[in-house]
Simulated scan of single mutants.
Amino acid sequence: MDHLPLSARQRAAYNQAGLLAHERFAARAGHHAESRTLPVDDLKDLARAGLLNLAAGEDIGGGGSGIMGQDPLLYLLVLDQIARHAGLATSHSLQVHSHALHFVDQCATQAQRRRLLAPIIAAEGLTTTLSSEPGRTARGPRHTTLAHRHGQGFVISGTKNFATLAAACSHLLVLVDGAPDSDVAGQRLALLVPVDAPGVRIEDTGWNPYGMRAGVSPLVHFDRHEVPEDALIGPPGAHADGNWSVKADLGFAAQYVGAAHGILESTVRAARRRGVAASPAVELRLGEAWSRLAAARWHYYGAAKLWETRDEGAAGPASQSAKVQAVKAAEQVLETATRIAGPSAFDADSELTLRSNDLRYLMMREQPDALSVSLGKALIDSAAEPVAAPVAGIAG
C-alpha cells in the first residue's frame, strides 16, 4: 500500500496502527473472542501510542481528526489497519469511542469541551453512544428512554441495548427523547452521563453472539438518573439535525474494507497451502475481489476528502455510497474465501472463521439496499443536467 498518497502524519499513523495490530492485537483476538471480553488492553496500547483520541481537537489533547476535523482520513486509516491486521473487535471499539468523542468535541460549547471532554481525554477514558433500544426496530425511531424536566436539568429513565464498550467506559453519550410533558417534548437530546453515576446500571446479559464476541454489548438501565443542564451536548435535535448517523458511515466503511482485506490475505495464504493458487479460476476470483475492495477503499478516501472541504451536501451521500460499496466488496470477499480457502481453513477456532463471523455479524446492522434506494431517489429528484454536446471529431 506504499503507493497511497498519504501525508507524512497519515503514513505514520497508518504504519503505527498496522504494527500494533499485527504484533499485539492479533495475538489477543482469539482470547478476547473466546472469553467474550472487551479488548481494553488494545485500547490502552492505542492510548500510549497517541491513537486513541484522534477524533478530538488538538487544543484539548486530541488529534484533530474525525469527520468534521482538520484531517478526516487520519482516524479512518487507523480503523482500516486495525481491522485488517487484528479483526473488528478492537477497531469497532475504537470507532464507537471516536464517534461519541467527536460528537461532543464538535457540538459542545468551548466551556463544555474544557470542563467535560478534556478530563476524559487526559484520563484516557472511553466513551460510546447509546441509541438502540429493545423493540426499536418494530416500534420505529421513537425512543422510550425519556427525559423529564427536573429543576435546572433532566431526569432520564429507560433502557438501552447494543451498548458496545459501555462496561469499559467512563462516560456515555445517551440519546433520549424529551417527555411529552416537557419543554423539549418530541426532541432528541444528547446527554453526557458518567457511567458510575446514581441511577445508571449496566446489566451483563450473557453476550453470546456467533460473531463480534469480543464486542461485548450489555444493557444499560437508567432509573430516574438526574442529569444537569450543562451535560446537554448541543441544542435539542443536534444529533439528528447534524446527520450524525451519516457522519458515522465512513468509520464503518473503513472497518469493512480493512477486515475484508485481512480476510482476503488469509484466503491467499490458504490457497497457497492447498496448492490451488495457480489455478486460473482462483486467480480470477481473487483478482475480482481485490479490484472491488480497492475501489471501495478509494471510495471512502474520496468521501473523506469531501468532508475535509466542508462540502456536507456532497460528503454525506458520498459517505453513504462508500459504505454501500464497502459492504458489497466485503460480501464478495467473504464469498471468495468460502470458495477458495477450503474447509480446513474454517475450523471452528481458526482465525479465518473468527474474522469472517465478525464481519458478517457487524454488517447485519447495514441496509445497503435501503441506502441505494435513497441515493437513487435523490438522483431522480435532482434537477436534470443538460447533456453535453459531442466532442468535435467523435461520432455521435
Rank of each mutant, 00 (worst) to 15 (best):
Y361Q: 11
W307R: 02
D358P: 08
S356R: 06
A318D: 01
L334K: 00
T353G: 11
Y361N: 07
A326Q: 01
A318M: 04
R355P: 02
P386V: 05
P317W: 10
A329W: 02
K377Y: 13
A345W: 04
A383G: 06
E312S: 06
A370F: 01
K328N: 14
G393L: 07
A329S: 00
A330E: 06
P317L: 12
D358F: 09
Q332Y: 01
L371I: 05
V333P: 01
Q320K: 08
V327I: 08
E312Y: 12
S344L: 13
A389K: 12
K377I: 15
K323V: 02
A348E: 13
A330Q: 06
S344T: 14
K328D: 15
G376H: 10
E366H: 03
R339P: 05
G313V: 06
L362R: 05
L371S: 13
A388H: 12
K323L: 15
L371K: 06
D349C: 00
M363N: 06
S344I: 13
D369I: 03
E385I: 05
L362S: 05
I340P: 00
T336Y: 09
A330F: 01
S382W: 14
I380Y: 10
T353K: 00
N357W: 00
K323S: 03
G342R: 00
A315K: 03
N357L: 09
M363K: 03
G316H: 12
K328G: 07
A341W: 02
Q325V: 00
A378H: 13
M364A: 09
E385S: 12
L352D: 04
E335F: 07
Q332D: 11
L352C: 10
E312C: 02
E385C: 06
A337F: 12
P317T: 08
V373M: 12
M364T: 04
Y361G: 03
D381E: 15
A388I: 07
Q332I: 02
Y361R: 10
V324D: 11
Y361V: 05
A337N: 09
W307F: 13
S372I: 06
I340R: 01
E351R: 10
I340W: 01
M364R: 05
G313K: 03
A345F: 02
E312P: 00
S321Y: 07
A345C: 07
V324W: 05
P343H: 08
A392G: 11
S350C: 08
D381G: 11
T309D: 14
R360H: 14
D358M: 09
D349V: 04
A378S: 15
V373K: 10
R365F: 15
E335W: 11
S344W: 04
P343E: 15
A388K: 13
R360K: 13
G313T: 06
